[in-house]
Amino acid sequence: MSAISTHSATETTAKTPRWARTRHAHHFRSHEEEFDACKLGMWLFLTTEVLLFAGIFVAYAIFRAKYPEAFSKGSHHLDWRWGGLNTVILLISSFTIAYSIRNAQTNNQVWLRRNLLITLICGGLFLAIKFIFEYGPKWAEGKRPGNLFLYPGAENPHEPIWWSIYYSATGIHASHVVIGMALIFWLYIRSLKGTYGPKHYTGVEVVGLYWHLVDLIWIFLFPLLYLIH
């Protein structure tokens, strides 16, 4: 497959890589217009995502102001080291997906695929840490949201609300990580066929934007949940 990267678009049609053969959709005037439209569309979608999480952040702020004690006690149950490790993992993945866009632009097909794969692995690691070392033990100890709360050592009657916010916020974020991983997997499969290259990397670009947002939301969740006591 690495042979593709050495080909130039001027050779015979059969050997022309897919990215060079990709034409813009019929209702756009040019490839640039299509690329701009897709980017604008993704930025608008990211706006909706920010507003979705804004609801959670508002709920966090209101209940934190209402029950500061419960939130302080609750956040002591979270281990900042796991949260910190996950932050580092997501930051690395943000770097690799940004680099994969660069790889597509410079037609470095091997590293395009490798970077997508590393991003995918980072997403998987994030989820594994979240579920195996955080959700799992906490759920087993009874540190659960709302009515399901069973933890005997609660020091504040409103700790269940804290756990509700914690699980809602990180749960919805985790679902975004899963969606992002599915998209990156789809990119990876397509990149095996040589779909992305200097003239066509719209998919990598917009999924990259989405993945950065997933990362960014975690950057806000991490201090709010783990670091502020």
């Binding site: 909706t48 995502e49 507003l51 979705l52 999480f53 804004a54 609801g55 959670i56 709920a59 949201p145 709302g146 009515n147 399901l148 269940p160 609300i161 509700s164 699980y167 809602s168 919805i172």
Partner: peptide, 19 residues
């Protein structure tokens, strides 16, 4: 999106009684 998160929390409320 704001109604999205609101209804999602309402569903959590009904299914898990998150409070």
């Amino acid at each position: 999106p704001v109604i999205g998160i609101t209804l999602l929390l309402l569903i959590f409320e009904r299914l898990f009684h998150v409070g």
